[in-house]
Amino acid sequence: MKLVTAMLAGASVLTAVPAFAAEITINSFGGAYEEAHRKCVIDPFTAETGADVKIVTAYSADAFAQLRAQKDAPQYDVIHFSGGQEIVGAKEGLLAPIDAAKLSNAADLYPFAGAKMAEGEGPAYQIAAIGLLYNSDELSEAPSNWADLMEPALAEGLVLTDISNTYGLFGFLMLNQVAGGDLDNIQPGLDAVKAMLENGAFVVSKSPEIQQAFAQGGTVVAPYASDYAYTLRKAGLPIKFQQGAEGTPASYITANLVAGRDNQDLALKFIDIELSPEAQACFAEALRYTPTNSKTELPDEVAADVAYGEEGVASLLRFDPEVIEANRADWVIEWNKAIAQ
């Protein structure tokens, strides 16, 4: 657990916002993400309100478990999820509905990002877009379709990620969809993967193994998240990101208002800053997450790594998190059988 402290911005700030408490509690995801969170949101929030931010470093599943355990006496004011936990949290009454009129940036969000705020599902303030990472030194043209990955000619240079990894799962579900499957039937995707492996593709479990595969040579393409292409380039590898023409699976990162807390005005202010074009441009620059505010402006080199603008976000699709959660364990068993053959 970490605590961000800041000098109060003076009596004038406290006078201007008398309803605001002196501190809010949020979760963040640690490491580089938490560093960006501080720079892009927390520091500007503290400067504007004079309030401190107490950070609990907790990923989505752990944060949601804590929220449930604290149901009668919640400790978080704003809670962030990347796995769709806001859908269940809203249904269980753990999250409070958000009035879009109380957020100055809500009107500028792409419609998908804030569609269910009134039902308690917090807005998406950034997106991890899943597409095709490719070696630009080895491929003269970017692979433009998910179906390209099924071509035998690409198989020996293809790296797939195990579906125990969320990004790997989203990539597989997209391949399954292209192969004719859906969330009720993943067999077409499993058959496609078996064919890829027979033709020379291989499977890794974690993102560092993708980097190793590209660094060792021979790997030319891997379905994965846009932010990781940037990580690989920072490591000196010539890796670029390309959205597949059939669609771009999206992992929503959401900011949610916790029910039952007495400083919701301050919490809403924090969420509003996360939705601002300035904060989202900052996150995109630092980590290459896709902005959800339509007024966010990015330089060309950053825009190339994300799903940017009206055209870029038009192909985003979200596989139902509730269906995924209900079936994931069974899918992993079937996946393991398929890749073992």
Rank of each mutant, 00 (worst) to 15 (best):
V4K: 06
A304P: 00
F270H: 11
R68P: 00
A118W: 10
A329P: 03
M7L: 14
L257R: 04
L268F: 05
E23F: 06
V323S: 14
F29R: 05
S28P: 04
P277Q: 03
A155N: 06
A9L: 15
L14V: 09
V193G: 01
E301T: 11
C282G: 05
A286M: 12
L149T: 08
A255Y: 04
N293D: 09
V4I: 15
E297G: 05
L160W: 11
T46P: 01
P208G: 06
Q85V: 04
M150W: 02
L317T: 13
A192G: 03
S294F: 07
G10L: 13
P208S: 13
A201F: 01
D182M: 11
F172P: 01
L132W: 01
V78R: 00
P299V: 14
Q216H: 07
A106C: 02
E35P: 02
D320P: 03
S28H: 06
G200W: 10
A63Q: 05
D320W: 07
P321I: 10
I333F: 05
V56F: 04
N256F: 08
N263H: 14
A101F: 04
N135H: 10
A96T: 13
N327A: 04
V17M: 12
A115D: 15
R68N: 11
F20C: 09
D330M: 06
W331I: 06
A267S: 10
I333H: 07
T161R: 10
L190C: 03
L237I: 02
D300P: 08
G30V: 13
G93M: 13
I324Q: 05
A326H: 11
G114I: 05
A69Q: 11
V221M: 03
D99M: 04
C40G: 08
F112M: 15
E23R: 15
G236W: 01
F270S: 02
T5N: 12
E246S: 10
S60L: 07
Y59E: 14
E278H: 08
D265C: 08
S82H: 10
P97R: 15
L173I: 08
D137I: 07
